[in-house]
């Protein structure tokens, strides 16, 4: 299990478009489970509705975890995605 933390800069927070893209990205790593944590709530990044229901806003710190498969590659891709889109 590897993880990194990220502070959201997008003014609307995790809205439908990036959430959808994130879920898609998470699904693309067949052997890697991607989790998304805000505070004490953790959801799978593939759970689009739950992900949006975290109500992540600009300024919130979130933690993204990866487990299984090529963890390094998944971590790098997710980190790049977060910086680019959120």
């Amino acid at each position: 299990m590897k993880q990194f933390s990220y502070t959201i800069t997008d003014p609307i927070g995790i809205h439908a478009r990036p959430a959808g893209m994130l879920a898609q990205l998470a699904k693309s790593f067949a052997d890697t489970a991607v989790t998304f944590t805000k505070g004490d709530q953790t959801v799978k990044a593939t759970q689009l509705m739950k992900l949006m229901n975290l109500g992540v806003k600009a300024g919130d710190e979130v933690t993204i975890g990866v487990e299984g498969g090529d963890e390094d590659a998944a971590l790098a891709a997710l980190e790049a995605f977060m910086k680019e889109n959120l």
Binding site: A16, R17, G20, A23, Q24, T46, Q47, L48, M49, K50
Partner: peptide, 16 residues
């Protein structure tokens, strides 16, 4: 286009 693609993903959401 992404609006509809997101809808498709919602539809496929495990929780839903």
């Amino acid at each position: 286009a992404f609006v509809f693609e997101t809808h498709a993903m919602f539809l496929d959401d495990d929780d839903y």
